[in-house]
Design a protein around this nucleic acid. Structure first.
Lengths: 344, 344
DNA sequence: ATCCTCCGTGTAATCGATTCCACGAGGAGG
DNA sequence: CCTCCTCGTGGAATCGATTACACGGAGGAT
């Protein structure tokens, strides 16, 4: 592969001049410039990014460590991150932690070894040693979706409180009183927050959230299945199951179906994180939708701000409720329409 | 960030010795080794992968350029690729082409600029200039899922012929005679092959595949919707729509539902590429399942073989049919059971 | 005792870029 | 005509590693 020396030789100039042309530095004569460009063309030369990074101490690369690529929410997040990064002249390297702290640490380590300019993380747990280290030693860093309390790093996330309140109002309006939640891991902020928001919203209607109605999941489908089975085995099973992510909702759907029960007739279901597939499930699933694209863009902008020496602030965007049929009869249409009988 | 020099100074040895310890070269005294290790520990030193890559001319990184990350099939492929690569001591950088040749080229270029050791590609089109160039100039490369005829690069893919034959048999057995297909882009091998396999299988039952029953899609949901609407507008609409990928199947499902029609009663639906969500759609979708995980692993193994100087062979794995309810009455169980009436 | 080997170590070249500094030519100003 | 800038250019240092080569000392063989 041709190097800058080959180009210099062919153009009859020094490597310094070639470098200047490549980085369009002003003081190069028009003549030299054309000769260099011709040589570059002829040799199909492309600068070696590795060498360039070593010298300039910047890779124009961002690292993104997410909890689980197979989760459509994170896939979409990753996509929007890459899009925005590309627009800003950066590449992104994705590390999939698969909800495993050890894997998360592995990716943070290799990313740091590669001297990425900045790190975007959606932490799987309370914070692995390497990550905390990176945050402390000043690697530009931004948390997205989930974060770690007490670590001084901007956080880009969405606030689901409003949407969860809307959800509970919707459920209450449909006559549901026994509401259960499949929580995410307590080590994650989203795992805790969603339970808190749910409990708080319930409180506004004078409803409690008994421990038996809080199932411990891990954001994976299997745990949703397991927890739901537990709910169904209760002497007084809940009327609604609210899954703290889409994968656990899928597991819940499985469990309900495996018992020969139907959603929403026998038990209602709602989920955090809306995804395209929820439109097509049987029945379509009511969900709290995060502004995923905007989250990704905002996170990249905050990170690049930090990388380039600007402040880089935290951002919180509101989530919103998307009502479908998995919790019962949809709300009646606004326009005049035939009277509907309640399903209760 | 500490460099090898700092470690050398602290351990009271030369950088050469430090390097030897790090790469566990045999000729280092036990004493020097412990002192170096202690210094490494104390400084929290991690070798700079950029510098190392420049010197050794290898990055231990693989590039993966896929057509569309949002497609669960490719997400799963990407995941298994990363897994296998990690097991073999490599990292992978994913480039999402979004079915756009220009984006594909962008990613191939930046990947090559970074001097990745090998490239895994699922080409979006007939082959962008940079990619063809890379193949010609000897960059270790392997095609996965899709490939480009005439380019001398190993191909790891799955053969859907058998499964498509099974699908047609299934459909024929259900009494369906007018079968249509939503094809992928003709520029992709999978786009063409799936149509060919379908036509061939139809031929075995004396069925033709008229042009009107071949809709041109682009592997995205929208095109599936559009094509399906076209089919439904036909004077004699097909009884079955076979989508050449899962996203177009989703679009087809949308289109059918938007007309107030039902699957499979009014029109049957089948898809290429099985995904977890197909179990939960209304109705569950019959699909041709590729051995995605194995494909990813095999592709990485073939690529790493090439990277490390071994031959690196093509691999073709069979796909299989997964029957669900979207094409009509499921096949009767094997065990003795009441006689069933045909749905025809 | 002498010579040869082998082992552990350090010096320095190298990878491919960027960039500081020096230098020569040419133009402007005195 | 001389001096001083400015401009374009090249030489060389540098980034942080790896590794060929040289060298000194210890130990074995004769």
């Amino acid at each position: 592969m041709a190097s800058i020396k080959d180009v210099a030789a062919r153009a009859g100039v020094s490597v310094a001049t070639v470098s200047r042309v490549l980085n369009d530095h002003p003081s190069v004569s028009a003549d030299a410039r054309t000769r260099v460009l011709a040589a570059v063309e002829a040799l199909g030369y492309r600068p070696n990014a590795v060498a360039r990074s070593l010298r300039t101490d910047q890779t124009r690369t961002l690292g993104l460590v997410i909890s689980d690529v197979m989760n459509p929410y994170f896939t979409e997040l990753a996509r929007s991150v890459e899009e925005e990064a590309r627009a800003l002249g950066y590449s992104v390297i994705i590390g999939n932690a698969d909800e495993r702290p050890d894997l998360q640490d592995h990716h943070v380590t290799t990313l740091l070894d590669r001297r990425i300019d900045g790190l975007l993380v959606s932490p799987t747990d309370g914070g692995s040693p390497r990550m905390l280290d990176a945050a402390r030693t000043g690697t530009p860093m931004v948390f997205v979706d989930r974060w770690i309390p007490g670590v001084d790093v901007p956080v880009v996330r969405s606030d689901g409180r409003g949407a969860v309140r809307d959800l509970v109002a919707h459920l209450y309006g449909l006559g549901h009183r026994r509401l259960a939640i499949i929580a995410g891991p307590a080590a994650t902020t989203t795992g805790r927050e969603r339970v808190d928001a749910f409990r708080e919203a319930l409180g506004a209607y004078g409803l409690a959230l008994p421990d038996a109605y809080i199932g411990q999941g891990d954001f994976q489908a299997d745990s949703g299945r397991r927890v739901t089975e537990g709910f169904l085995d209760l002497a007084e099973p809940p009327e609604v199951v609210f899954a703290a992510d889409n994968l656990m909702a899928l597991g819940a759907l499985d469990a309900v179906r495996a018992r020969g029960l139907r959603v929403p007739d026998d038990i209602a279901l709602a989920a955090f994180d809306d995804i395209p597939w929820f439109v097509h499930t049987d029945p379509p699933v009511t969900a709290v939708a995060q502004p995923t694209r905007e989250l990704g863009r905002a996170a990249v902008r905050a990170l690049v701000d930090r990388v380039e020496g600007r402040p880089g602030a935290s951002v919180t965007l509101p989530a919103r409720l998307v009502v479908r049929r998995s919790c019962g009869e949809p709300t009646p249409p606004q326009s005049p329409s035939p009277v509907r009988r309640s399903t209760s």
